[in-house]
Nucleic acid binder design. Structure first.
Lengths: 181, 181
DNA sequence: ACGAGCATGTAACGGGTTACATGATTGA
DNA sequence: TCAATCATGTAACCCGTTACATGCTCGT
């Protein structure tokens, strides 16, 4: 999936400049891109060329002028098409598992320590995501249905980290049991 | 994390040719790379230049000669270093959540259908991973500890899909309840 | 005086993917 | 005869990241 649909979605909510989109994407736990300029400004040009968005230059005194992008009717129908299209399978790449795969060579202490470090990283990440969600500036709340959907999206993200936490804690316990036997 | 460590890990288990590594990586649920030639042959050249692996050409009658790579002592100590190093946080990118974010515009039927399709894709993926694990040709079983670790790795992968399944099923149920109210 | 925020853009690079290229053998 | 398997490699391309570049304003 390309970032263009993410941008198209945001613009279907409200018009925005590249700079605003960048910040929204940066802060969004769901939209997993880093929010770098390169991608966003390029994507906007492409969307413009395809006629899916339009822009309007807004001059401002005492700050640089900005290009406000808004979605066109064509953009809306393209977005709808995409939303009902075949979902992609989620991408889950866990480098830690590859690391663990060759951890036989470690002592029990080293292995235990490695698991603890992973656990604490996941925990930090969980808190960070919760924080992002709680602040949740950039989320439309136009009706109860939208609220429900966005809630479920947050729940999904959190459950991912919780699942990971439960797994690593389980593994640590089993290891301890094995070692004390 | 680069694929070089994955390859180094495999070679710490047993020597192999690029072609064999390709197949192992393709079939491995944990090593998430596609297993394309470009990456593997390039990585092997780099590992060779760094002195972490060595190769030996094996001529065969009635099939092309192959280069058998094996890990060096330097490679082993580099691998150990990496294994005890700071883990990375897992990468979880779910395009479906971005799609869902703009699903307010859908009818209840369309939304329900979308969720069902996602559920069936996850389910397929879960079965596929289970199959891969069950076949599990490419997994070292040198001792009970290694078996335990590899078991836990498989468990992690499966729990990811199971968690995703539980989430989507929960969402479907809640939606039905809401609609019947 | 300096850094942060607003605002737009470009350059360089790395990782990863598909597809192409070659060539022998084996089984349907 | 056609496709698959063994075996190595290259080319073209896309996506995404960091870093660079510019310039104005506002608060400390």
């Amino acid at each position: 999936m390309s970032i263009q649909y993410a941008i198209l979605g945001l613009l279907s909510w409200k018009p925005a400049s590249g700079y605003e989109l960048k910040k929204i994407i940066e802060d969004s736990p769901t939209m997993y891109w880093s929010g770098n300029n390169n991608q966003i400004y390029k994507a906007l040009v492409q969307l413009l060329n395809e006629g899916l968005v339009a822009n309007q230059i807004q001059h401002q005194e005492s700050s640089p002028s900005k290009k406000i992008y808004s979605i066109t009717n064509e953009g809306r129908s393209r977005l709808k098409e995409w939303v009902v299209s075949e979902p992609e399978i989620p991408e889950f790449k866990n480098a830690f598992l590859v690391q663990l795969a060759w951890a036989v060579q470690l002592s029990n202490e080293e292995l235990h320590d490695l698991l603890l470090r992973y656990e604490s990283m996941i925990n930090t990440q969980l808190l960070y995501q919760q924080e992002k969600i709680k602040r949740g500036i950039a989320s439309p709340k136009r009706n109860a249905r939208e609220l429900f959907i966005w809630d479920k999206i947050s729940e999904n993200l959190l459950s991912f980290y919780q699942n990971e936490l439960a797994w690593v804690q389980g593994m640590r316990e089993e290891l301890n049991k094995r070692n004390s036997e």
